[in-house]
């Protein structure tokens, strides 16, 4: 053993002199590789997490959609049951309506109205007089109109 061999005990020298000391370039490469793997891993995990969350959310929404469709069908059915002819007829009888019999058709001049412009056909005066006649009718509704209104109001309240 040579006597002039100096062994420094300073930490930086100890590290520098270690036999397994890594080359700085290799260390940098290793760090980069580690960082890349970490990044890819992080990306994968975050994506997997997002996919899983979204997947469960889709499942939940699918169930919710199904339930809404079911509720919709149930409401449609309820409406149909309320509108059922047998029920409407029974309620109509309850409030005094009777089946219609003994119809009498009255021919009404110019009914149905022609498709052409009324102004062209009859002139403005004729239309005004028609509107006036109608207005008089509306102002004094008969017994039948009152009954119809009562029935319509009852239907709306239902």
């Amino acid at each position: 053993m040579s006597s002039n061999t100096m062994i420094s005990l300073r930490p930086e020298n100890v590290i520098r002199q270690l036999p397994w000391r890594l080359d700085s370039k290799a260390a940098l490469g290793f760090l980069l590789l580690l960082a890349t793997f970490s990044l890819v891993g992080w990306l994968y995990l975050s994506q997997a997490s997002a996919v899983t969350t979204t997947s469960y959310r889709i499942d939940e929404l699918r169930v919710e959609l199904d339930q809404l469709k079911n509720q919709n069908a149930s409401l449609s059915l309820e409406i149909a049951e309320l509108e059922a002819l047998s029920r409407v007829e029974a309620r109509a009888r309850d409030i005094g309506f009777e089946p219609t019999t003994g119809f009498e058709y009255l021919p009404v001049t110019h009914y149905p109205m022609p498709l052409e412009s009324e102004a062209t056909l009859y002139g403005a005066t004729h239309i005004e007089s028609s509107i006036d006649a109608y207005a008089v009718e509306v102002e004094s509704p008969g017994w039948w109109v009152e009954k119809l209104d009562a029935f319509a109001a009852w239907l709306e309240s239902e």
Binding site: A73, S74, S76, A80, E83
Partner: peptide
């Protein structure tokens, strides 16, 4: 799948599925 409905000519419901 959901079975289709049956309605009359005016659209009144005649048959549907209840869950």
């Amino acid at each position: 799948s959901r079975r289709g409905e049956v309605r009359d000519r005016s659209g009144y419901l005649l048959a549907t599925d209840l869950i």
